[in-house]
Design a protein around this nucleic acid. Structure first.
Length: 166
DNA sequence: TAGGCCATCTGGTCCT
DNA sequence: AGGACCAGATGGCCTA
C-alpha cells in the first residue's frame, strides 16, 4: 500500500550536505511526483463515524511534514552514530568511507578481538577464532562474504592494534 | 547499464 | 494523542 512516492515536502530537505556513502556525492532534495496526493490515514467520514475529531487535510499534511522532519533528524543522528563508530574502528585507510554494513561488521570483529585479548590476559581460552575472514561460531552469511577481504585486512590490523596498546 | 549504497517519504505499530 | 521506531518503496548518485 505504499505510495508511489512522497509529497514534495516543501521543506529544505537538502540533506544538510552530508557527503554520504562513496566519495563525494551531493544529494539534492528528493523530487517527488507532482501528482502525488497523500492518502489520508483516516478519512474525515470514517473519523466522524468513530467519533474522532475531524482532521483537515491541511492539518494532516502539516503533521506529515513534521513527521518527515523528525524522521530525517532521527536518521541523521543515526548516521552521526555510524560516523563516530567509524572513527574508533581500526581499519585500513580507504579513499571511500566504510559503508554501514562494513562498519557494523568490523565493529563486531573488533569486539570479538578485544574479547579474545581480555580472555588471553586472564589466561582463559579465547572464545573466538578468525579463520580466513570467517568469524567463528557465527553463521557466515552473504554480508560477511561481501566484506571478507576487508575483514581479512582488518582482523590482523585489529590484533596488531590491540597488541601495541598498553 | 547494472548493481550497490544511500536519503527520504510513508504508513503501521509500539510506547509514554 | 503524539512521538519514536521500523521496514518497504522509491529514486539519486557513484563505480565497475
Amino acid at each position: 500500500m505504499k505510495q508511489p512516492s512522497g509529497n514534495q515536502s516543501s521543506e529544505e530537505s537538502s540533506s544538510d550536505g552530508e557527503s554520504c556513502g562513496r566519495g563525494k556525492r551531493k544529494r539534492t532534495a528528493r523530487r517527488l511526483s507532482p501528482s502525488y496526493q497523500p492518502t489520508p490515514m483516516l478519512s474525515a467520514q470514517a473519523a466522524q463515524k468513530k467519533g474522532k475529531r475531524r482532521v483537515s487535510a491541511r492539518e494532516r499534511n502539516l503533521r506529515r511534514l513534521e513527521s518527515n522532519e523528525r524522521e530525517r533528524m532521527r536518521m541523521h543522528s543515526l548516521n552521526d552514530a555510524f560516523e563516530q563508530l567509524r572513527q574508533v574502528i581500526p581499519h585500513v585507510k580507504m579513499e571511500r568511507k566504510l559503508s554501514k554494513i562494513e562498519t557494523l561488521t568490523l565493529a563486531k570483529n573488533y569486539i570479538m578481538a578485544l574479547t579474545n585479548v581480555i580472555c588471553d590476559m586472564r589466561g582463559e581460552e579465547k572464545p573466538y577464532t578468525f579463520v580466513d575472514g570467517e568469524s567463528s561460531g557465527e553463521n557466515n552469511n552473504d554480508e560477511d562474504i561481501e566484506v571478507e577481504n576487508l575483514e581479512e585486512n582488518n582482523n590482523s590490523s585489529c590484533q596488531r592494534d590491540l597488541e601495541t596498546r598498553d
